[in-house]
Amino acid sequence: MSASPVESSAASSDVLRRYALTVGDTSLILAQRLGEWIGHAPALEEDLALANIALDLLGQARYLLSHAAELQGGERTEDDVAFLRDPQDFLNLSLVEQPNGDFGQTIVRQFLVDAWQLELFERLQQSSEPRLADLAAKAIKETRYHFRFSSGWVVRLGDGTEESHRRVQTALDALWRFTHEMFVASPAEQEAAALGIAPDPASLAAGWSSRVDEVLKEATLKRPADVAYSWHGKRGQHSEHLSRLLAEMQSMQRTYPGAQW
């Protein structure tokens, strides 16, 4: 049975909305985590760099969340989508909600996500959905810089001192289990791929893997064994950390409903 044109356009707008949230929430939550560092980084240069990356990610998130708000209709804004949604409605990768830990852990998390976003935005530039293609065209340039920064630090820390090598290897071992999720399609990603507006996540794995391997080799770090258990942040099933992060991020909007800021 084929859907009527009206139904199918409503359905595709819902797919697009959920897909925009999958990509946008990942950028938003990572920006929020990086924001915790500003003023506390190991050196002034890193304070500035982390703030830069956070600002880029926040810009991506605002673009996509505004679009999601429009697709949902009514008077909804990017702020309603960011601040008045419950944790189970966030569709970000579980990796980005993991706590900052030490600088090594923050860098490893950033590096793994940057490598994934590079593959994703590269492909998303060819999306038949103009809003996604536009976002990707801008974001790919930002992500190249992010990847240069994070992979540069992975190498420096991996091939630096004994202590830095140990710390960054520990971070890699701890975070690797969250990478499987990147390549397993959520319902939103599956439907978006079927509509031809986004790549199949599985198709990003090979590029991501070779990019990561190249840097790990230079950093003298060992690639951990893959863990088949997949986290499901992209389906709204999160680790314990997201609700705390959101409790803080959303506190003003939740405490003063309806106020303008």
Partner: peptide
Amino acid sequence: GGRWVREAA
């Protein structure tokens, strides 16, 4: 907290 990072660099 950043000492080990600067030393590594």
